[in-house]
Structures are given as C-alpha cells and as structure tokens.
Design a protein around this nucleic acid. Structure first.
Lengths: 226, 226, 226, 226
DNA sequence: GATGAATGAGCGTTCATTCAT
DNA sequence: AATGAATGAACGCTCATTCAT
C-alpha cells in the first residue's frame, strides 16, 4: 500500500542512540528482535541480557547502540510516530477539503495497523501493540522534563500539531484542538486494548469499527460548536 | 467536604493483601509512606527495601501485608476508585435530573483533587498523581487476564458502569456509553499530566478549568446525537 | 503384629526437645505432620514456616517443642532406632540359638517396613524413607562431635552393639563385628534407595528379597572365618 | 605416583557447568577454594557469597561457571569418580589375574587417599573427605530422577559396572555384583568417617588398615559361594 | 501454653555496566 | 566494531528467631 517511496528511512533523533541501529546488520537485528521480545514478555521484564541471548550476541554489543532499555523504547516510540506522520502525509496527499482531511487523519490514527513492507526489520503490528501498552511509560516517568527538553517527544507533538492545524482551519475559534487530538490518539489506543482485555470498559460492536467511528464523531461534533 | 460520614472504611478486595493494612498501625504507615515514596521516586524505582527504610521497619514486615509492590499498587488503585465512587454517590445525592447528574459526575471525575479528611493516612492529592502516572501499569501488563479474572478491576469497571447507566437514561439509543466514560476518565488524567509536563499536547487556558469544561462538552455533544 | 504391648511410648533423649512432643496434642501433630512434610519435600526444603502452615499453627509454637529443624530430625532418628530396638527385642524373644538370632536380627533390620499400629501419630513407612534419605545428615555434619558427646547417637550405637554381641557369641575371635553390622544397616538402606532410583547400582531380582538375602549371606560368610 | 600421564584433564559432563572451570584461572580458583571452603564449613553452610569473599571475586562471577552450589558439588563428585576410574585403570594395568585385579581394585577404592600431583588445583585428600560427608546429598535428593536422566551419576555407575565385570569374570554365577561393589564403596566411606567421629560403630585396629582388609575379605568370601 | 506480629540477617539471583582484547 | 569476561550493586524473598500478649 505504501510502496510508492522505495528505500525510505525514518529520521530518528540522534540522542537516543550511540550508534545508529539502521547503519548495520547487528543494529537492525537489535531493533527487530527487541520488538519481538518486548511484545512477548513486556517492557518491564525486558533486559539487554535476554535480548543478547535472543540475537546470539552480547550485552556489551547492544550497549554500543543504546545506553539502556529506556533509550531503546524511545527509539521505537519515535520511529512509530515518524511512521504515523509518514502514513499521514501520504494519506492526505491530494485531499483539499479540511473536513475530509481531518476525517482521513483520524481514520489513519485510529484504525487497526497493517504491515508496511517498506521496513523489513520492523513488524508494525507488534510495534503498535508495544506502543499501546508501553509507550506511556516513556513520558509517565520521572525524566519527562529532561526528555522533553532534548526533544524526545517532538515527533508526537508535531503529529498532534499537524492535525490541530487542520482543526483550526475548519473552525478558527475552536479552543481545544490539541486536547482533542491527544485525547483521540491516546483514547483510541486504550479502547483497542480494552476491547481485547477489559471489554467492560468499552463497547464493541460487530461488523463495524466502533473505535474509529466513535472518535470521528467526537471530532466532528466538538469542533463545530464553540 | 465529605466529613458527613464518620469513620468510613473503604472495602478492598482481600486478594491484594495478605494482612489488611487498615488493621494495624504498621499497616497504615505502609500505605501512608508508600504513597509518599511512589510520589517521590516513581513506581519503577520504588522497592520494599526503600519503603522499609522510610518507615524504619524491615522488608520482611512489609511482606506480611503485601506479596510484592504490584499488589500494593493494586491496593492503592482499588482504594482510589472506591473513594471516587464514594465521592460520586454523595455528590449525586438528591440530584434527580439525569443531565445534571452526568455533568456533576464528570465534574467529580475530572476536577482537581482536594484532601479528604476522613482518611488520615492517605494523601489524596498525591495518590491522584500516582494514579495518573502509574495506575495504567496495573492493567497494561502481562497479568491483565489473571488480574481481571480475580476481580481486581471491578471497582474501576463498576464506576464506568455507574456513569454509563446515567448516559443510557439520558439517551437509551446511545451506542458508546462505556467508551465515552473511559475515554473521559483516562483522557482527563492524561490532560492533567500533559498540562504540567507536555503543554504542547493540551490547551491550557487561564482562569478556567479547561479540562473539566472540555470533557463535559464532549459528553453533552456526543450523547444527544445517535 | 506388635500389638502385644499396649500404650508403649519410646523414650527419647530430652536434650533434643524443649517440650516433649508426646505430651500434648499439638506436639503429636508436629511429629505427624513433620514426617509427612519432610517425606514430601525433603529435609533441605523443610522449614518451620511451612510446617506451621501445614499444622495451622505458628512457628513460635513449634519453637516451644524444638529449637530448630535439626533437633526435630534428631528426634525422628532417635525414635526410629528406638523403635527398631523394640522390634528387635520382641522379634528375638524366645529364640536361643545365636545364629538364628543373628539371622532374625538382619531380617528385621533390612526387610521392608510395615505400619506399626501402636504409634498412631507416626507413619513408619514414610519415616523409614526419611531415615534412608536424610538421617545420614544428622551425623555427616560439623556438629558430630558435640552431638555425639551429648548422646544423640546412643540409640544407633546401642543397636549396633546389641547385634555385635550376638556375633561375638557366635565367633568370639571375629574382629570386625561393629563394622559388619553398621555396613549391613547403612548398606541395606542404600540398596533400598538404589533399587528405586538408581537400579544400575544394585541387583534387583524378581520374587525374592535380594537385599535381605545378600546381607544375611554376608554376615554368615564373614563371621565363620577369622 | 600417577605422574606418568602429563597434562591429563578429566572430562566432566557439560551440563553441570555453564562455563568450564578448567578453562580459566578464575574457574580453577573457584574449584580449588570451594573444596577448601566446603571442607572447612560443610556443604550446608557453604554459599556462593562466602566463596566469593574467599576468592576475592563476586557471586555474579561464580554464576558464570555454576548455576548453584548443587551443580558445583555435582562437578566435584563427577571429578572425583572420574579420577578414581583413572587411578583404577592405571592401577590395574598389566595385571591379568581377575582375583588380583579385584583385590587391587578394592585396595584403590578403600585405601586412604594421597595427593595427586597431576591436578594442581585440586586437593584430593580434602576432596575425598567432602565426597565422604557430602556426596550422598547429590543423590539422596528430590532431583535424583532428573539428575540421573541427564547422566550425572554415570561416572559412579560406570565405576561400579567396571568392577562388577571383574567379579563376573571370577564367578559368572554370582548374582549380586553391583550390590556388593556399591556396598563396599559406600561402606568404606562410612567406616572411614566412623573411625574418626563415631568409633563405636566400627572396629579400628592398630597397625593395620582394617577397613581395606574387611572389604577385601568381604568380596572374596561372598563371590566364591553362589 | 499458644499465638500473632515483627524483625535482622542473609540467600540466591539478576541487572546494568565496565574492561580488556 | 564486536565480543567475552568480570564485577558492584541491588533486588526480591525467606529464614530463623524474638517479643508481647
């Protein structure tokens, strides 16, 4: 589906890594297998020791790429939001009408993830599950201020800003565009999770993607007032 | 504000503790100081060793009450939601009109927390910050299924259900009451956090509680359609 | 089989216990359940904590009877050898011929154990398995000298002496009666164990109790020479 | 005495260690000092912590070699029996007569141990004392079946088999060769221990090695009958 | 005499990290 | 650049034991 740009490489803030994992086979293996491993055992139980066993290398080698497991999670999170932005840009290409652009944006942000063949070493479906379960841990954290200061949340903030701009275009008076967008993004993540593990907290309806429908309606109804 | 019921004691599911912390001075101290400590250093860095030093006791003594730090966090989370329910019940007393009841509910769920003098050993303001930053960790977790099966999320689910019922009363056709309520609860938590640490993700406005306003409007606008 | 002496009570050296376990219901329960528990999990993993849970009492209560788990094992071991002596005395009653007495003795010492209904709170079959697997630990131990000095091994030594006397009666010139007897007792224990778990170290023969046969022959052949 | 084979290295089953202790200086030190320490304080009180202090290293470093103290004891036990086999093979070299071979075998198995200069980092005298006091703990144990299944007792069983073969050669009708050999080996160990700590259980005679004499006679007398 | 509560000490293990090659 | 080896520090937990009632 997104094969129109061959050999893309998403730009990741250099401060999360010591050596760019995209620059070597070992680096790519680290990314690929860390997604696999975090998906399997969760971030809390994930250690460089276990990862080194999985990739049949050593902890010392992984340290060459990342200072610690939190940096690695930052890397994955940034990659994910850059990838979302990339999907968004191409998804909105040639759509002029702002309402349509907004709806399409929410569609992209909240719909179930499918594999992207452009990035061989990354399983986007598993990465999405990791982002849902673990990514909040990168900012619900005693290091937020420092991490924010060095720009680790820029990709996420830029994405929110990008869609907020569309909202402002539709209704320049609307007072809470960022609040709305971040509520939708985080909300959609939670609802996907709840629908799998805590269904009493959501409303799953057959033959329809209730989550996407719900958040589209939310955007439309809230923006027009104010 | 809630002083009208003297000596209340919130009921906590017995399976999260070995010995009821509310049954002894040491137990209460464990709760009081764990809130303090998790608030200070975060749940990830929180250990029974550090807590034991803070309460001038030993790890072994804490183990008499809780099997591990996750159980303790479950205890705090359950206490928090039971307390919310309790605040809700009294906040809604004598209000008949369902729209009013819903608005009042959202008010209670999303407004800033104030101290409750009924529970001396619990600092609700700090506990609220903990719930915001850490409570997701109790269900974004490899044990969700097991924990859910034994009823650890009941208090949260019952709270969501309680408010969903009000929504249904207002509009029996509305399809997504639970999704709406859980989006509001989680969303409000996130927005409070963002407003402090990641303001670009929210829209803070002076002289107004934008968060409460935003989520009230959300409920009203979404329910009437459908 | 041994029911001819009603209400016997085997005398145990007082220094292994603080309070005679035979003097109270709790004490008997401690003995009964400790046999059960050591049989199940082995002496190394056996703790007063686990025992207290099994008997639905507390560690502190057990301490009133025994100072530590080693004392308890001593108690069981002493009881076992006193019980063996008791079986021996009655087994040899009215047999005059020393050769016959020796053979009967070895029979009793090496044959498979059966339940003795005189001691309700003791399961002799399980106790025998414990003695086989664990009793060496009471003397292969840094406290041998001290334990020996206070008489903890007297019951075992007296049993060996008793049978050595029979050997001397048969052949006053025989130089190694104690070595022979202790070799037979320990050997028979090991062979029973090997036959169950390490059969390559023994020679199990169908329709015959090879172990008893082997050690009887050993005694006969060795004594007559010298 | 056994210096005729330079640079021998006894083969140890790889599953008892993570990293071959014979492959590094630290590894050899672990073996050397663990023998020293177990000899001093006994296996029950022996911990990796204490060993790490003795070798001025850390527990973590020892874990690189052995998973736990039981594995280390297995290592020592296997080494011991392989060393016995090695002594046996050279001790029997050029002896043709099976009776002579058997007597020599028992001599080697039951005589007091002397140092073997081929293995610098191993004190065979102390190791022998350890084997006497502690080695039974490797099989009188809830893991016997598992340990046996993975071959941990092979060296011992092979040694028993090797001597059983000699017995069969002498008297093909003899029914209990393994029982005899294992009785002799275990018995001799016990008698050495008894002679030091519990003399009433044995018969020590001056100017003679009673233990060796006793077990040689046992073999001769028992085999010829049947 | 029996029990409930509390605790000091230490065990076994893993983690994150560094060093040397 | 990648790896193998080593290690300091801490974690989670249990044990044996004592104290107060």
């Amino acid at each position: 589906m997104l094969s129109f740009i061959p050999n893309v490489k998403l730009q990741i803030n250099e401060i999360v890594y010591n050596k760019d994992p995209d620059s070597s086979e070992l680096g790519k293996k680290i990314i690929k297998e860390s997604i696999e491993l975090i998906y399997e055992i969760g971030f809390e139980d994930f250690t460089f020791k276990k990862l080194s066993l999985k990739i049949k290398s050593t902890e010392a080698s992984i340290y060459r790429y990342f200072d610690n497991k939190h940096s690695l999670l930052h890397y994955l999170t940034i990659w994910y939001w850059r990838w979302m932005e990339y999907k968004l840009i191409f998804g909105l290409a040639n759509i002029q009408n702002p309402e349509e652009r907004l709806i399409k944006s929410i569609q992209i942000l909240t719909e179930p993830i499918t594999e992207d063949s452009n990035f061989h070493h990354i399983n986007e479906i598993k990465l999405n599950k990791i982002i849902i379960s673990e990514s909040a841990k990168v900012y619900l954290n005693k290091n937020v201020k420092k991490d924010n200061a060095v720009g680790l949340f820029l990709p996420y903030k830029e994405l929110v800003e990008r869609i907020s701009q569309i909202i402002i275009e539709i209704n320049p008076q609307y007072k809470y565009p960022h609040m709305l967008v971040s509520t939708i993004i985080e909300g959609a993540h939670y609802q996907r999770y709840f629908s799998e593990y805590l269904p009493k907290l959501t409303d799953v309806v057959k033959n329809e993607d209730a989550i996407t429908t719900f958040y589209k309606k939310m955007a439309i109804e809230l923006i027009k007032k104010d």
